[in-house]
C-alpha cells in the first residue's frame, strides 16, 4: 500500500490543480447526496406516522374498558380461525402507552399530558389479505367487549400513494444528480491524469504497479465525494433542527424524526458517496492506464 504521506501529497496537489472542476464535483455530490438523504428521511417520517396511527397493522379492534382477558382469548381464537388473518396480537394498555411514549419521546408536553389509562387496549390484526376486511367485521359482529373495529388499510393505501409520488420524485432527482456528480468526478480524475501524464509515464517505466499509479487519483475522487457527503449530512441536520424541531413543539399529535434517524442515514450517505467516487474514478481512467 502506498504510504499515507505520499497519498496525501498527491491528493492535495490534485485538488489544487483543478480546483474549479473539483468544486463542481463536490457541490454536485453534495446536492445529490442531500436529496438522497432527504428521501430517506421522508420515508422514515412516513413510517413513523404510519406506526403511530396504525401500529403497522391493517385492522385494529379496540376493546371496552375494563378488559376481560378470557374474552380477549376467545376473540383472538375467533380471528385466528379466519384464513385471511395472518396474525393477532393483543396490545394491553401498558404496551399502547409504551408505544406512544417511544414515538413521541421528544414531545415531552404531549407525553406528560396524556394519561396512560386513556389509551385503549386493542387487538392488532395483521391481514393475509387486507381486501377481506368484511370477513373480520362479520365474524366479530355482536361479540362482547368490542368498542370499535377500525379498517386502517384504506388510510394506509392513501398515505402510501401520496408519499410514493413524493419519494420517487426526490429519488429520481437524486439519481440524476448522482450521475452528474460521477461524471464530474470522472472528469477531475481524467484532467488529473492528463496533467500528470509525464509523471505517469515515468512511473510506468520504473515499474510502479497500476494500483500504485491509480490510487492517488481514486483517493482524490473519493475525497471530493466525501466532502460532498459530509456537507449533505450537515445540511440534513440543519434542516432537521430548523424545520422539524419547531414542529415538535407546535404539531403535537404526529411523531417527528429525531436526531437518531438522521445519524442512522450517515453511513448510507458516506457509502453511497464512496461508491459513486470509486465508479467514477474507474470510468475516468479507463483505457488511460493500460500498461
Amino acid at each position: 500500500m502506498p504510504r499515507f504521506e505520499y497519498l496525501f501529497r498527491e491528493t492535495t496537489s490534485g485538488l489544487r490543480r483543478n480546483g474549479l472542476v473539483a468544486f463542481a464535483a463536490i457541490s454536485t455530490t453534495f446536492i445529490a447526496l442531500f436529496l438522497f438523504g432527504l428521501s430517506l428521511l421522508i420515508s422514515r417520517q412516513v413510517s413513523l406516522m404510519i406506526e403511530a396511527t396504525t401500529g403497522n397493522v391493517e385492522v385494529a379492534v379496540y376493546l371496552t374498558d375494563p378488559v376481560n382477558l378470557d374474552n380477549v382469548q376467545s376473540l383472538t381464537n375467533t380471528l385466528n380461525d379466519l384464513d385471511v388473518v395472518a396474525d393477532v396480537h393483543y396490545e394491553n394498555k401498558q404496551e399502547a402507552c409504551d408505544r406512544f411514549r417511544r414515538l413521541f419521546a421528544e414531545q415531552e408536553a404531549l407525553v406528560n399530558n396524556v394519561d396512560c389509562d386513556a389509551l385503549p387496549a386493542s387487538l392488532r390484526v395483521k391481514m393475509e389479505d387486507p381486501e377481506q376486511y368484511a370477513q373480520v367485521q362479520a365474524v366479530l359482529k355482536g361479540q362482547p367487549g368490542i368498542e370499535q373495529i377500525v379498517d386502517q388499510s384504506a388510510f394506509l393505501d392513501r398515505l402510501f400513494a401520496v408519499t410514493r409520488v413524493f419519494r420517487v420524485g426526490v429519488l429520481l432527482v437524486a439519481f440524476v444528480m448522482l450521475v452528474s456528480a460521477s461524471i464530474l468526478i470522472a472528469n477531475t480524475v481524467r484532467m488529473g491524469l492528463f496533467a500528470r501524464r509525464k509523471e505517469i509515464g515515468i512511473m510506468k517505466l520504473v515499474g510502479a504497479t497500476n494500483w500504485r499509479i491509480r490510487m492517488p487519483f481514486l483517493v482524490e475522487g473519493l475525497f471530493e465525494s466525501l466532502i460532498g457527503a459530509v456537507a449533505a449530512i450537515l445540511f440534513l441536520f440543519a434542516i432537521k433542527v430548523a424545520f422539524i424541531n419547531p414542529l415538535n413543539e407546535s404539531v403535537q399529535f404526529i411523531p417527528w424524526i429525531v436526531n437518531r434517524d438522521v445519524i442512522a442515514i450517515i453511513p448510507i450517505l458516506l457509502i453511497a458517496g464512496a461508491i459513486v467516487a470509486l465508479l467514477a474514478g474507474l470510468v475516468g481512467m479507463r483505457r488511460f492506464l493500460d500498461v
Binding site: K198, I202, K204, L205, V206, G207, N210
Partner: peptide, 22 residues
C-alpha cells in the same frame, strides 16, 4: 501477465534522449 510487467521493469533501467525529468 500484465500485472507482472511492473516487476519486470524494476529490473530494467531506462534512459532517453529527452531525459524525461519532472
Amino acid at each position: 501477465t500484465s500485472w507482472k510487467v511492473p516487476h519486470l521493469r524494476r529490473n530494467i533501467g531506462t534512459v532517453f534522449q529527452d531525459f524525461k525529468l519532472l
